[in-house]
Design a protein around this nucleic acid. Sequence first.
DNA 1: GTGGTCTAGACCACC
DNA 2: GTGGTCTAGACCACG
Lengths: 125, 125, 125, 125
Amino acid sequence: MVDIDLKSRTPIHKQLYDFFRWQILDGSYKENDELPSVRELAISLAVNPNTIQKAYMELRREGYVFSVPGKGNYVNKIPKKSKDEEISRLKNKITKISFKLETLGVKKEEVMGIIEDVYKEKSYD
Amino acid sequence: MVDIDLKSRTPIHKQLYDFFRWQILDGSYKENDELPSVRELAISLAVNPNTIQKAYMELRREGYVFSVPGKGNYVNKIPKKSKDEEISRLKNKITKISFKLETLGVKKEEVMGIIEDVYKEKSYD
Amino acid sequence: MVDIDLKSRTPIHKQLYDFFRWQILDGSYKENDELPSVRELAISLAVNPNTIQKAYMELRREGYVFSVPGKGNYVNKIPKKSKDEEISRLKNKITKISFKLETLGVKKEEVMGIIEDVYKEKSYD
Amino acid sequence: MVDIDLKSRTPIHKQLYDFFRWQILDGSYKENDELPSVRELAISLAVNPNTIQKAYMELRREGYVFSVPGKGNYVNKIPKKSKDEEISRLKNKITKISFKLETLGVKKEEVMGIIEDVYKEKSYD
DNA sequence: GTGGTCTAGACCACC
DNA sequence: GTGGTCTAGACCACG
């Protein structure tokens, strides 16, 4: 399900963009899968169709999606670059945060433990 | 030095708030230290005094700072709670990110390596 | 009607905050009701939009209200806690005042009479 | 002891005025008693002498105090009117508050109980 | 000198 | 249309 928070401070089109982008990157949406139609999604989320359009346009602009006029929107073959960029973005973030944690006196072992837990939990899926 | 990016998309007052909040949490600003005066800071950063005011008001509201009208703004005793909350906020973030990294196929060892590097670097300070 | 005294010593934004806060607490404004738009209210009260903004921001910060950018400001579900806090705040005040009245030699019966009158009058509504 | 909160948002001169005014009304300071000298008080409270002056001036203006140049400040015979005005001011306040409490659903008996407690406690002094 | 408030007018993103 | 941000400049109370 497309999960959107209408009250959130982050714009709806951005939430939609992030949502589909992530679904594509993590493989939930695969190459040539069709995205929900603009009208259908607009109704089911009770938002303005323009807002959906804006999200899809951004996905197109970033190369995650292509549109067939009169048909629909389909996911592209993800260039490995996109995935690598996302990974390095996340690594960058994690660096900054652990830096801050260190400054606040949190021990290395504690941070390691968090990572450990995440990977442990996942392996049970 | 107060470091602000005037071009950034995040509001100046938010940047200022984050900056001072962090300086207080990490101990750079100690109890009863005086913050730069509104006017002074406004001039040195070339921003409007109101923008500084907004940041200081937020700091005040969150209890990091108190103001004596006609005198200046001073840092409060930080309740341990604030620090703990910040730590758990950061831990929460790090959990989410490593979750994403795992999903993208990044190995645990690689993430661990990042943490390791951060703590190693710091220990040379 | 929103009733504001422009000449009063207490800041306009504070008056507005108090007004809406009270309307929400006493049930005149109910959950999801829309507050007057910033511009509209600014015009009708002949004050600056920023002043309204300040009041709404405070209401938001205290959790009485949420805003949807580009749409409007709406009242939140009031946590019972807020109401209880207000009651105990008022009780505290009434204690201090009757203490003072006692010191000035006002008889208990006289104070009781005041309360009696208030509750009598209300019951005719 | 003169009890002043330097951090409070209410101006120091106002706090001083309120303090002495109340001491006079409740009889702690009697007719012809001498108030602390401006310089002495300024030093002991670590505030600006101008601030003390301002408070004393206000007390003089309101007729609670008279000054003998070169000697000091002394309390006047309190006109019964001042006391009566204060009483009606307090009664007015208590009316407003109990009105609000009623609106919030607090029962009459509960409010009465508060008054009762205050008068009971006082009678043990 | 300081902080606090307010106005007037502008620009942006959002829907 | 809406709310959110920022600027420029003013006035006041405070110490």
